[in-house]
């Protein structure tokens, strides 16, 4: 199955914080709006990002009207709509706007599960990254929720057996 996605700054920053940007290789096509790249660049481009294959795109021509979203989130959502690709974001408001617009939307935890499913991570590595996402990044997620996500991985593993 071919996977194409556009990311806002959240997953790029959060995956960089846990040293897991290589998981973006699970996507056959990764688009990054120029606005998002500029946002990430402000904090310093993460080391691993230059090793990844991605395409910079300009979303300025079709802004998505939403006062709740920042410029990068609006640009990424516009690209997701235009290109009909998955929108990667860790922002709750952006996620809700995408769902309302009928756009397929997922976040960093989904990317870790995808990496596990595609054999890029062992179970322990995936669980460790999920914990790190909760403990070491600015992503707001309750520990109990992360534990549930890890149990889902385990259940899928048992189902596969």
């Amino acid at each position: 199955m071919t996977l194409a996605a556009v990311s806002d700054a959240g997953p790029l920053i959060h995956l960089a914080e846990i040293d897991a940007l290589e998981l973006l290789a699970a996507f056959d096509t990764l688009l990054i709006p120029e606005t998002v790249y500029a946002e990430v660049e402000t904090g310093g481009i993460p080391d691993g990002l230059s090793d990844r294959s991605y395409e910079l795109v300009d979303a300025a021509a079709r802004p998505v009207p939403s006062t709740e979203l920042d410029a990068g989130e609006r640009a990424a959502l516009a690209v997701a709509t235009d290109y009909d690709v998955t929108f990667l974001t860790d922002d709750l408001a952006a996620r809700e706007a995408a769902s309302e617009a009928g756009v397929d939307v997922h976040g960093s935890i989904g990317i870790i599960a995808l990496g596990y499913h595609r054999g890029m991570l062992h179970r322990e590595q995936a669980a460790s990254l999920m914990h790190a996402l909760q403990q070491e990044t600015s992503l707001f997620v309750t520990r109990a929720i992360v534990e549930r996500g890890i149990r889902q991985l385990d259940e899928s593993h048992r189902t596969d057996d």
Partner: peptide, 20 residues
């Protein structure tokens, strides 16, 4: 309520990742 929303999101995301 925030935890409930997070739970939905994580379940959706993990389910997607495991089936994509």
């Amino acid at each position: 309520e925030r935890a409930e929303r997070e739970r939905e999101i994580v379940e959706e995301d993990v389910d997607w990742g495991l089936n994509a």
